[in-house]
């Protein structure tokens, strides 16, 4: 196991992400965060808190992408749905989809489908903590805290205090216990 970000650098990275979003957008009143279950929601909350401290209230939503998966046939491990809660109208909004890791791109594809079922956003952006190798779809983002070169059998774990009792990003090689 290799620790890539520790508690301090983790927090620093989130601040930088918030900064990037702020630089990108002129109309901060029209943006909304949608966190993808489970750790995307934590990141979304952290970012919203940073914005709030600087006087900007960003609308937040929660998304479970299970109903939009392209692999129902392999999703056996989590048949139970989690909450989807998006109380604002997504139409015309600049949506930031927020997740912990960008890997194959399939989760993001599902999340975009889910958002478009709710309305027509003005734009959709993607924010992640870690971007690893292994894309299977033409999906990418610059809004990431760290880019990790990985082999196919590697695993990337993004951990949040909220559910994992620690803030860190770690890389696990083949066969290593996560």
């Amino acid at each position: 196991m290799t620790q890539i970000l520790n508690k301090e650098s983790f927090e620093e990275a989130i601040k930088k992400l918030a900064e990037k979003i702020r630089e990108e957008q002129t109309d901060l009143n029209n943006i909304a965060f949608i966190g993808i279950h489970t750790r995307g929601v934590h990141l979304s909350n952290r970012l919203a808190k940073i914005f709030k401290n600087s006087g900007v209230n960003v609308q937040q939503g929660i998304l479970d992408i299970n109903l939009y998966r392209d692999d129902l046939s392999q999703s056996s491990d989590k048949p139970i749905l989690k909450e989807t809660k998006i109380t604002f109208d997504v139409s015309g909004k600049i949506i930031y989809l927020i997740d912990d890791v960008l890997y194959t791109g399939r989760t993001v594809r599902a999340a975009m489908d889910a958002v478009f079922d709710l309305g027509r956003p003005q734009a959709v952006h993607l924010v992640v903590m870690a971007k690893r190798s292994g894309r299977e779809l033409p999906i990418d983002t610059n809004l990431c805290a760290i880019t990790i070169d990985t082999k196919q059998d590697d695993s990337v774990a993004v951990r949040f205090e909220e559910t994992d009792n620690v803030d860190e990003i770690s890389l696990f090689g083949k066969g290593e216990q996560i």
């Binding site: 109903l67 939009y68 139970i80 309305g119």
Partner: peptide, 21 residues
């Protein structure tokens, strides 16, 4: 029932349809 509660949300949307099945 837990799963059904999640589907209640879909049933309150303007577009009451998901591509799952």
């Amino acid at each position: 029932l837990e799963t059904a509660l999640m589907f209640s949300e879909v049933n309150t949307r303007a577009i009451k349809k998901v591509p799952t099945l």
